[in-house]
Amino acid sequence: MIRFDNISKRYPEGRDALQSVSFHLPAGAMAFLTGHSGAGKSTLLKLIALLERATRGQLFLDGENLTRTGKRKIPLVRRKIGMIFQNYRLLFDRTVFDNVALPLVIAGHRHQDIGRRVRAALDKVGLLDKERALPITLSGGEQQRVGIARAVVNKPPLLLADEPTGNLDPELSRDIMRLFEEFNRVGVTVLIASHDLDLIARLGHPQLRLHQGHLLNPEVLSIR
């Protein structure tokens, strides 16, 4: 699903965020991306979502070479990816329903279709009764579940999460991770950046370890 081929990323101010990173995350896999803050986790995820461009190397998503993707094609690439953020990034002036519906509206789905799919996604994250609520009235864990519902509502083949449990207590974090495992079980590829090492260790998925822009153990994915 994701293949990094000697990817390097240097920011304009001269900082090397990633250096010669290579790995292959097969379709249907679930993996964690770990490392200290500043190790390059966020940069790696941003490269996949084309929020940043690699300075060197080749990057493939679902067989497509992203290093050659033109500016106008970027939205289409992003529609293949469900993205989840540490600070949820919800629209606070819209209801839960409207937030979750956003990817479908963008993709131009029919009205009836949208209602059905949004309710299915909310049902999966256990928030079906909150569809009319405003995000501000929800707890942190609930807001993140809205974020997840929004990420999966258009059934993308890949989920990327950047510190999805960073603002949540351990119990809620476990619930959220369990949700990701459920999506992975039905075939969605999942890559989660996190530094919650205790939680990750208990879940037992492969971990890609980044240290100062270097990937320490690319072989962890191919061994399985």
Binding site: A49, L51, R72, P75, L76, V77, R78, R79, I81, M83, R89, L90, L91, L102, P103, I106, A107, R150
Partner: peptide
Amino acid sequence: REEIEITKLIGATGAF
């Protein structure tokens, strides 16, 4: 601004 950023993240085209 926030709304524009989020919709871009989700894959909104420039036209949208």
